[in-house]
Design a protein around this nucleic acid. Sequence first.
DNA 1: TAATTAATGTGTTTTTGGTACATATTTGCA
DNA 2: TGCAAATATGTACCAAAAACACATTAATTA
Lengths: 237, 237
Amino acid sequence: MPERIIKSLKNAEIEKKTHQSYFNIAVSVDCVIFGYDNHELYVLLKQSDLEEFQGLNSLLGDLVKPNEDLTEASFRILWERTGLQHVYLEQVHTFGKVHRHPSGRVITTAYFSLIDMQHQQLNISKHQLDWYPVRKVKQLAFDHLEILQLCLQQLQQRVMERPIILHLLPPLFSLRELQSVYEAILGVELDRRNFRKKIAVKDWIIDTQTLEREVSHRPGKLYKLKSGMMNNYRPYQ
Amino acid sequence: MPERIIKSLKNAEIEKKTHQSYFNIAVSVDCVIFGYDNHELYVLLKQSDLEEFQGLNSLLGDLVKPNEDLTEASFRILWERTGLQHVYLEQVHTFGKVHRHPSGRVITTAYFSLIDMQHQQLNISKHQLDWYPVRKVKQLAFDHLEILQLCLQQLQQRVMERPIILHLLPPLFSLRELQSVYEAILGVELDRRNFRKKIAVKDWIIDTQTLEREVSHRPGKLYKLKSGMMNNYRPYQ
DNA sequence: TAATTAATGTGTTTTTGGTACATATTTGCA
DNA sequence: TGCAAATATGTACCAAAAACACATTAATTA
């Protein structure tokens, strides 16, 4: 089978290539898993188990198996490390520098994922994972800081176009909470009145006719995602 | 070396993996090379040399060598197939379905490229390449139609944000030509007066104080890219 | 129980950006 | 010299975004 690939893709001008030289690149995926809590955007990181990067954190990644799609591999990582299924996942970029991995040639495709860290129960301790505030992450193993930054940038763009931000919140939420998530992601303060108008125009959420509980001030209305909305704004995986 | 990669990336829960199973994925890049001529957006295609896809065209792609960056591989393809160097290149997406290549597991990263097909001399005939109007391309080998469509979509987004569209034109161009390229890419007709205002605001180009020649009507002013502009709007390769 | 506090909820005005549209100007050519 | 076919530019109108203010509600407390 490999022989056929080589044959089909080879170009007469290029020197003859052997099976060995072609299948010397490992393929991995890395997941940037975002969560939100109390005005802060978090990212899920693990301790790097590579001696070169001792003491540093890294993203959650793994090599892709020969019989799984790239997307499947990302879902598998999320499942294995956090126990979560049906999470939001979006491809961002593929990083392919020759020396990006100290142990050999590994190209990696980065995905970002959004989960409701306040209410989803994660198997975090089992895998030595921890949540870190994104704005405090200054150093990571490999080129993972660059990957994180690019994923954050893409997230910032996407939240204006699609209702994906709601994956970071519980099913019922107030407009104040929603605004706080936007502010945490975009790193800016927003005007409450203009923000509400902007959200209203997008028509992503509906009033559930219920109110917040256990707040020591006037309770806000609770909203939920309008049904079918997520399907209307699919990512390209 | 491969052993170290496996060790460093392996996860205790996963069954033990062998070198063989990890290095069974081939990595390729595919280039969607866009050109513009006479109100039409073109894409450079070659005849597929795979028997499964006899008679169909495909994008220009090749396997990535173990010692070259992903970006390098794309530049190499452009150089080998067209003779062009220093072309604009931007990564779009990585396609990783298990069965996307009939001969085996190949994941591919798609790039798009913009070249001035009217004035750059290409070694097209040598490689059985040809330009095809993008809007007439209905079928391609592999998943290349999907790749082409996604690249076009990304191009449509990018041309509004950055002056990359100028790579499709010669160094000196009129506003009418520029508008035609926008119309070809976006697939819409634009109002000439509003278009000019929009371009003026972006501040990408400057008046060269020269006029078109050999036109049978009032000649338009010729413009050129403002210096340093491309550096201010770099793609993320 | 009335006053206070700390939020929510909903305007209005102003500015900016985009769209629709019209007229004067310049060159080549008959 | 006038006509054809463009270029070049300006104005009126509308929609969206930004700046900004006030009334309302529930919990708390004096």
